[in-house]
Amino acid sequence: MGMSITSEQNEAAASAFLEQAEERFGGSGVTVSIEHHSNAVKFAFVRMTCPPQHWIALAKWMRFDAGINYCSMITGTHYPEGGTRTWGVAYHFLRQPVRDVEPFTSDVLKAESLEGMDIPLEIEVLIDLPDGREPTVPSVQSIWIGADWNEKETWDLVGIQFEGHENMHRVLNPHDSPDGFHPLQKQHQIRYHDYNEMYDDAQGFVRKPADEGRVK
């Protein structure tokens, strides 16, 4: 039978992390909560919201004290309707029990025997940026190496600046894309966004793409 982390372990890990985080950051604008997924085995994960000015402190604490060693995803979103926020950055991290091993040995983890800080855990950090044309978030490039290219991609596609990020460059768009062109912002719509092509220009031979003639 395959092994897997049980929901008790998962809940224990989530609450332990919650306690630690509350102790350290309670009341400073950082909110911590336990949410549950609605898919698969409905495991718990920790969701934190953080104002941008506290982000570096939180990140350092997470990496060095709480053992969150894997930065997996950085998502930037543009909310032009505003409301409480115009820009949002969502970070996803994992705490993985991976450590260097001696040569010719392997660390075969048994899921049931993991405890404490060894239990894998998912953490989500949401940073909402208020209205502004220049959304800026402090960069965690020096804290997790994995955040490096994720931040490049987020700036490239969404336009969120990462303060303190060295060597920021275009990673998915062409290098000579115009400054300020960030395609995932909502004012850019993909060609034929509203399915209007079928009835006036069946195969797109009449319209020309916006970047026609450009050397790519």
């Binding site: 395959g2 994992l94 991976v98 450590r99 392997s106 660390d107």
Partner: peptide, 17 residues
């Protein structure tokens, strides 16, 4: 590199167990 961390058991999602 020696550690058998695998999402299929660490963050289980299907009937891998």
């Amino acid at each position: 590199a020696g550690v058998n961390y695998d999402v299929r058991w660490a963050h289980p999602y299907s009937v891998y167990d």
